[in-house]
């Protein structure tokens, strides 16, 4: 069964395929960016860890986006981006027809 990683599998084929969290929660169509169907918490880049720009020299141009499964709230991805940038579609698997 195709999978994005240990947390997210692809179930089904072709246009019917969906991304599914390990908890069984159906995230969304496999043909779409899985992240836009997750819960997201966007905050300062310092949310990524205690040693991430602790002096704030980068100002607020970068953000930390944490993506959680709406079902089990497992953390499924952490994205560092400039504030104005859209959510990155980082994994697009070819789904079997």
């Amino acid at each position: 069964m195709p999978r994005l990683n240990e947390q997210i599998e692809i179930v089904g084929r072709g246009s019917e395929a969906i991304a599914v969290c390990r908890c069984g929660y159906e995230i969304g169509p496999a043909a779409e960016n899985y992240k836009v169907h997750l819960l997201m918490r966007e905050g300062p880049v310092q949310n990524a860890g205690p040693w991430v720009d602790p002096n704030g020299i980068g100002g607020d141009r970068f953000v930390c986006r944490e993506f959680f499964c709406p079902g089990c709230v497992t953390l499924l991805d952490v994205e560092i981006a400039q504030r104005h940038e859209p959510i990155l579609w980082d994994v697009r698997l070819d789904v079997p027809e």
Binding site: Q7, A48, G49, V52, G58, F62, L76, D77
Partner: peptide
């Protein structure tokens, strides 16, 4: 220096 280049994967956090 503004952002951590060592990104995490599948729910892992980035470095410092």
């Amino acid at each position: 220096t503004f952002q951590p280049g060592s990104i995490g994967v599948a729910g892992g956090y980035p470095s410092n």
